[in-house]
């Protein structure tokens, strides 16, 4: 680990100024991802600015009937909050499907969506990785792709030596639920406050895979707002993984089903960002949700999906798997609704 200076400013405004002033500065909240990366040499900051105790740790009611999750609230506290559990079970379930009790007691609302990919090559500084070291190439293409993207990649068979190639996925469970909930991200930056729709927070790799989100240097998430949902809305999170617990998703699905309304579907671990299945949502608008209709809608959603060959057979299984998982999740939600 490279030496770094540590600062704990008096308030968030000062924290934002501190980070903005130092190009190689980072925010520290729970630290579960950052400290991991400091040890690996994946993160090499000169200055670490601790905001853990500066933002709100509260879950509070919003005037519109929604909820505001303070950036410093822990994943455990949010998952246990009665209002979250009753009104946004998809979020509670997503949080509880993630990591472990110990990690959830530490990880925060602001930090969780900003965790970086779990691509094994990203975490190994002895291998090329465009996300970690722009322009160095992508080791994942043709390598260990089991946890990698099938949607939103640059090409069917990306060029591993090209600087834009990246087939990493975003690992957060929470983020998939927030994408389905149309959450809003409250941000404080050097230029002041702004609100970013959660679905626009994360990027596809595009021509710069090193950037996971649209946040500018020095911008800090201060809260995440959950918009109100119509009474009777059902929601669920389904995570599919090899191990029954303490494992990243092979695929995951967050679904929100307002009564008589249109279903919202977000997919996890299939792309560089939480993937809102907008094509499938469109096709299902006004339609009856049956295994058949959902499967067909998901077929359309996944029409452009690109399986990545690789060690142990690659990740082509994710395409039927995510389809089947969406079908199963919506089947459970609709049978719950009719029960």
């Amino acid at each position: 680990m490279k030496p770094f200076a540590y600062a704990r400013p008096a308030d968030v405004a000062e924290a934002v100024r501190d980070v903005a002033a130092e190009p190689n500065a980072v925010f520290l909240a729970g630290g579960t991802n950052l400290v991991d990366h400091l040890k690996l040499g994946v993160a090499r900051p000169d200055l670490v600015v601790d905001v853990r105790t500066l933002t709100s740790a509260d879950v509070s009611d919003l005037p519109d009937g929604g909820l505001r999750l303070g950036a410093a609230s822990t994943n455990s506290e949010v998952a246990a909050d009665r209002r979250v559990r009753e009104r946004y079970p998809v979020l509670a379930q997503a949080l509880l499907a993630g990591a472990t009790g110990q990690l959830r007691n530490t990880a925060t609302t602001g930090g969780n969506p900003l965790q970086r990919t779990r691509c094994v090559y990203f975490a190994d500084v002895t291998t090329p990785c465009n996300k970690r070291e722009p322009g160095s190439g992508c080791s994942a293409v043709g390598g260990y792709t089991r946890y990698h993207a099938v949607l939103g990649t640059t090409a069917a068979l990306p060029d591993p030596t090209a600087p834009e190639t990246c087939i990493a996925t975003h690992p957060s469970d929470m983020a998939v639920a927030l994408a389905a909930l149309d959450a809003q991200v409250q941000v404080l930056g050097p230029a002041g406050e702004r609100t970013i729709p959660f679905t626009e927070l994360h990027r596809l790799p595009g021509d710069d895979p090193s950037r996971d989100t649209v946040l500018e240097h020095g911008e800090l998430i201060t809260a995440i707002d959950l918009p109100p949902l119509p009474a009777g809305t059902r929601s669920a999170y389904r995570k599919v993984r090899d191990r029954a617990s303490y494992a990243y998703a092979l695929v995951s699905v967050a679904a929100v089903l307002p009564p008589g309304g249109d279903v919202r579907i977000a997919l996890g671990s299939v792309a560089h960002r939480p993937w809102r299945a907008t094509r499938a949502e469109e096709l299902l608008r006004g339609a009856e949700l049956t295994d058949h209709s959902v499967r067909a809608a998901m077929d359309a959603e996944l029409a452009g999906a690109q399986p990545q060959p690789g060690l142990g057979g690659g990740n082509g299984f994710k395409i039927p798997l995510v389809n089947r998982t969406v079908v199963a999740t919506l089947r459970a939600l609709t049978s719950e609704a009719s029960a």
Binding site: Y6, L28, G31, V35, G101, Q102, N105, T106
Partner: peptide, 11 residues
């Protein structure tokens, strides 16, 4: 319950 391996002492 938390993991001290991921906690910087200074923080």
């Amino acid at each position: 319950r938390q993991l001290p391996c991921l906690a910087l002492a200074v923080a």
